[in-house]
Amino acid sequence: MSSPSPNKLLNLAQQGLAQQLMYGSPTSTQPPAWTIDLIEEVKALKISSQKVESTLNQLTIKVSDVEIELSGLTKQVNDIETSCKFLHQDVEQHMRDINLLKDEQSNIKKWNADIEKQNFELENLQLDLQTRSMNDNLIFHGIAETPSPLVNNSAPVEDCRALVNELISDKLSIDSTSINLPKVHRLGADRAKKPQPIVAKFGNPDERETIRKKSFDKDVKEKLKTARQGVGVQRPQVNRDARKMFGDLIDGYEQAGKTVRQQERTLYVNGKLTKVYMNNKVIDPPAFMMTVEN
């Protein structure tokens, strides 16, 4: 049943009053029909208003629930914003820490490079001292080890000076009786499968140079090769190790028609520093060496 409109109720009331004025008061105790209709319409209007009020109450409750939910969401959003601020601060702090670490890493790399440079320079100084101490030496290869007989049960002693003089006389055809050899000794242990080389220190640089140059004569080289012997300049061990490590590289560069020169622990190709022997391996030149080259 639809709710009566206010105009409809007014019309019913006006019609009832008009009938009462026209015909007078009814003699029957039964209320007029228009009053009954009016009462029914009022009842319907009351019921309708109650429904509207109930609906409004429900909407009010729902609106209140929505407000509560919005309040909770607002709090969550505020918490998220606060968390984001803290996260942003943490990220900024982490970025500052990372930048500090990068700076420290850069400083450590620079420090390591400086130490590497200093170590290389110290090693070169040591090698230079070793090379200078070997300038008066020649090394003789392939001389058989012949220890002297035991004397009074003492350890056998080898006369290295006599062995070197014999090689100089026999293979180089140089009178060795007057050659001054202050120190002569064999390198390495006597357990090697082949004779260890003998190092001889010359008291006279001219005599050393004469013997060194003589060893390059064609006939002398042939004699030494046949006897599996040789005469050479003594160099520091690290330079000999570098020569071995550079061997394949040198062969490859020379086959490609390039000019190759080894200078102690460095290798130059066409006049440019190309490789360095450091820490028992061949590497590209460190930055500090390239700076010096440039």
Rank of each mutant, 00 (worst) to 15 (best):
D159A: 15
A192L: 07
K183V: 15
I115E: 09
S178G: 03
T177L: 09
K117F: 05
N137L: 03
M134C: 11
F140D: 02
E92D: 12
A113Y: 00
P147A: 09
V157E: 08
D136E: 14
E145C: 09
K193L: 08
F86G: 03
E81G: 05
R96K: 13
N135P: 02
P156A: 15
E166P: 00
L87G: 01
V91W: 02
Q105L: 10
T177N: 08
P195F: 09
K171C: 00
F120E: 14
L163A: 15
R132Q: 15
A200E: 01
L138Q: 08
Q105T: 02
E121L: 15
V199E: 03
L129Q: 10
H185S: 14
M95W: 01
N180S: 11
D136S: 14
S133Q: 13
I108E: 03
D114T: 05
I115A: 10
P156V: 06
S154F: 06
H141S: 03
L122H: 09
D90N: 07
R186K: 12
D159V: 10
R191V: 12
R96F: 01
D190H: 11
E92Q: 06
N119L: 14
Q93C: 03
T82S: 15
Q126A: 13
F120N: 15
S106D: 10
N107G: 03
